[in-house]
Amino acid sequence: MKSIPLRILAITLLKELGLASLLLLGVSFVVFVILYAAPGDPFSVLLEGQLPSEQALAGIRAAMGAQQSWYGQYFSWLHNVLGGNFGTSLHSGLPVAGELVKVSLNTLYLTLGSMLVTLCIAVPIALYSSMRGHAVAISWPLTMLGYVFSALPVFWLGYIAIYVSVHGFDFFPLSSSGASDGNGWLYTLVPVLVLGLGSGTISEVIRYLREEMSRVMAEDYIRTERAKGASVWRHAFKEGLLLPVSEIIAAKIPFILGGAVIVEQIFNWPGMGRMAWQAAQDRDFPVIMGIALVAAIFVRVGSLIQRIVYTAVNPQGARD
């Protein structure tokens, strides 16, 4: 493979995009149906603080123009979204699209950062323990450590992190608290670390990479090359590292987004998870729908990137 065949890439891309839009449609529909089945009128939440009378509720519905059947509501939502209009939050009145952009960027930073943390820990451990001839005495405790972090409840880990940074290192790891001295960004590393360590993915990444790496190393091709004394690094890197890493990242996005719900609450992170939690409590339909869509887009983009990497590395496989 001298150059990446563009045609195949383009076809992959188109296929994935088509699939992605179908999936987004499915996601939005499922979320809508669940929301519709939930008790609690979203409009009654607006009268929180007093009990809604039937009359007041009817008045609100009329004012907000929501008197359609459920599928009518879904299709009008869909129609608006296709026109780029995600509606406005029932609760704050702010346009959902603008809010989503803000919070999703924050969450993107948190999740990407934590994935990086996960990989920085998991990849060396996996590589080390998949190589032959290495002492179990070293790789074993490392693997164990990775497993231990994955088995801790993430919010508890967050509390420990805050307790330790306050009492041990004399700083308060909330993004908003240290902005004045220019080192504010440093504090954002703590939640990133906590999510990276505690999202429960390290053990799986280690395991998966180790499997893949040892499988690749055991391939006939590598054995022959090795016997000839040639370098097998290139092939092993692509097949044993690049592919599995891109696969695991793509597959773990929904998982890490879930962890972000918790970490964002603890570290006061103005992200999507916190917004989702609040919106679920407020029955803020447009916000929940928007977040579900964006989360699904994250997942699909991850999978798209993974497909592209795969096609680039292994054009034959992609053609099949």
Binding site: I34, A251, P254, G258, V261, A280, I288, I291, A295, V299
Partner: peptide, 12 residues
């Protein structure tokens, strides 16, 4: 696979 699992469960 496209749903964040925790969010889906919260909704349900």
């Amino acid at each position: 696979d496209s749903f964040p699992r925790l969010v889906l469960i919260l909704l349900v």
